[in-house]
Simulated assay, not measured.
Amino acid sequence: MLVLSRRKGEAVILQDEIEITILGVEGDNVRLGIKAPKSVEIFRKEVYLSIQEANRESAHQSSIGVEELLKHLNNPK
């Protein structure tokens, strides 16, 4: 992990197209401004992890086999 010290109004640049600026510091809170292309998705980490978990859960939904599907189609209840 790269660790940088920045003051209010200072910024860092990532890969020529993402700029992160320190807007303010109040106690333990740091306000960031992020300039990035619209194609770059930006999430708070807790939201990103929640999205990943939901995707994992939906990918692991149980599915029935072809034989079971045919059985249900031929003998609807």
Rank of each mutant, 00 (worst) to 15 (best):
M1V: 07
G9S: 11
E19S: 11
D28S: 12
K71G: 02
Q61I: 14
L73M: 10
L4E: 13
E19L: 02
G33E: 15
R7C: 01
L23W: 07
H72V: 05
V12G: 14
E17W: 12
L2Y: 15
Q15N: 11
G9M: 10
V30D: 09
G9Y: 02
V66W: 13
M1E: 13
L70H: 04
E17Y: 07
L49G: 00
E46C: 03
S5L: 11
L49I: 04
E53K: 03
E19I: 08
L49W: 04
G24F: 00
Q61K: 13
I51N: 05
H60T: 02
E67N: 09
V30H: 08
G65S: 13
E41Y: 12
K77C: 04
E57C: 08
E46G: 14
L32F: 12
E57H: 07
I13V: 11
I13P: 15
N55W: 02
I22N: 02
S63L: 15
E17G: 10
V3G: 07
E19C: 04
L23F: 06
S62F: 13
A54L: 10
V40K: 10
N55E: 05
K38G: 11
V40G: 02
K8C: 08
V47T: 13
I34A: 06
E53M: 06
H60M: 10
P76R: 15
L2N: 08
H60D: 08
L14C: 07
S63P: 10
G33Y: 00
S50P: 01
L23Y: 13
E53Q: 12
K45M: 09
L73Y: 11
R6F: 01
N29L: 08
N29C: 01
R6G: 01
R56F: 06
F43Q: 02
D28M: 05
H60I: 01
H60E: 08
I51A: 11
E67D: 15
V40R: 15
A36V: 03
S62L: 10
A11R: 11
G65Q: 05
G27L: 14
A54V: 00
D16E: 09
K38V: 09
I20Q: 01
K35D: 15
R31G: 03
P37K: 04
N74F: 15
I64E: 03
Q52G: 03
A59I: 04
V3E: 14
P37C: 14
L2H: 09
V3Q: 14
I18L: 07
S5K: 11
K77F: 05
A59F: 12
A36T: 01
T21S: 12
L49V: 11
A59L: 13
K45G: 05
L69V: 09
P37T: 02
I20N: 01
L70A: 05
L70P: 03
K38F: 07
M1I: 12
A36E: 00
S58P: 05
A36R: 01
L73N: 06
K77Q: 13
E19N: 03
R56I: 09
I34S: 04
D28Y: 02
E10D: 10
G33D: 04
E68T: 06
N29P: 00
K8T: 08
I64P: 06
P76W: 08
A36P: 09
I34K: 01
V3A: 03
K77I: 08
S58R: 14
R44D: 00
Q15G: 09
I42G: 00
S39G: 13
T21H: 05
R44T: 02
L73H: 12
K8V: 07
D28R: 04
V30E: 02
E46H: 04
I18M: 10
V3C: 06
V30T: 02
Q61S: 09
